[in-house]
Simulated assay, not measured.
Amino acid sequence: MIDRKDLGSWIEGTPQDPDYVPGTSYGLPADGPGSVAGFGRRLLSLLIDWGICVAVSIAFFQYDPLATLLLFVSLNVLLLSLFGATPAQFLLGLRVLPVARRWPMPVRALVRTLAMLTVITAVVWNRDRQPLHDVLAGTAVVRA
């Protein structure tokens, strides 16, 4: 016979450790510079970067969807490779750090950006507050 408490275990979600600090498995500090960035700042930086690409697409490409997408990919890959941050991330005090694997930053930036375009990788997060596209690229978005 199925008991109500058996059903409650999966309804309550995955087991969580209340003492775990996101980012510590990568050696990142718990707070302050270098700590894992919060969801709000990350989302705002994505919206600002997308808005920049939309504005350029409207001004020069008659708001062509493919041009907007290519601008977004180019902006991310180029600026993450060179500076470790997009314009919005720089503005909001964020940066992208390598935390796993030994890939050069241009490869990380390309993998991260292409995975982000699938959208599903942006909504699946782990306990270190990393979306799947960051896990795949071996990166973490931290406070600058």
Results as ranks from 00 to 15, higher is better:
V96H: 03
V36W: 00
A100E: 15
S25T: 14
M1P: 03
A140E: 07
A37H: 01
R102G: 12
V36G: 01
Q89R: 11
A30L: 02
L43E: 07
W50P: 00
V99S: 12
A88Q: 05
R127K: 11
F72N: 11
L7Y: 02
T24N: 14
S35P: 00
V142T: 10
G13R: 04
T14F: 14
R41A: 14
M1Q: 02
P104V: 02
A67W: 08
A140T: 07
A122W: 02
V56E: 03
R95D: 14
V107E: 08
P98V: 10
I58E: 14
M1R: 02
L136M: 09
S81Q: 07
L91A: 04
P65M: 05
V96L: 15
A59E: 14
L117Q: 09
N76K: 10
S35T: 00
D134K: 06
A109L: 03
L80P: 03
T121Y: 03
I120K: 01
Y20E: 12
R101P: 00
G34E: 12
R112A: 09
L7H: 02
D3A: 13
L47D: 04
T139W: 08
N126Q: 00
D19M: 05
I120W: 11
F72D: 10
L80I: 12
L97N: 11
G93D: 07
R102W: 11
S9K: 13
Y20V: 05
R101C: 06
C53H: 09
L94N: 01
V73P: 05
L70E: 02
F61C: 14
P65A: 10
R143W: 12
L97Y: 02
R129K: 14
P29E: 05
A85Q: 11
L79N: 03
G13L: 08
A140M: 10
R127M: 07
A67F: 09
L92G: 06
S45A: 15
L78T: 14
I120C: 05
T118F: 10
L69E: 06
F83Q: 12
W50K: 04
D6E: 15
D17G: 06
F90V: 03
V56A: 14
V111C: 09
G13C: 06
L75G: 01
T139G: 13
A144N: 14
P29C: 07
D19H: 06
P15L: 09
T24E: 15
M116W: 08
I52S: 08
G23D: 11
P65Y: 06
V77A: 03
S81G: 09
P106G: 01
R4S: 05
P87W: 01
P22A: 13
G8E: 09
P87Q: 05
R129Q: 13
A59C: 14
D6C: 10
A88C: 04
F61H: 13
G13S: 07
S57W: 11
W103C: 01
D134N: 06
D128L: 05
I120Q: 02
V96Y: 04
L110H: 04
L78I: 15
L110T: 12
V56L: 15
P106H: 02
G8W: 00
G27Y: 02
R127Y: 01
L79Y: 00
C53P: 12
Y63F: 15
D6R: 13
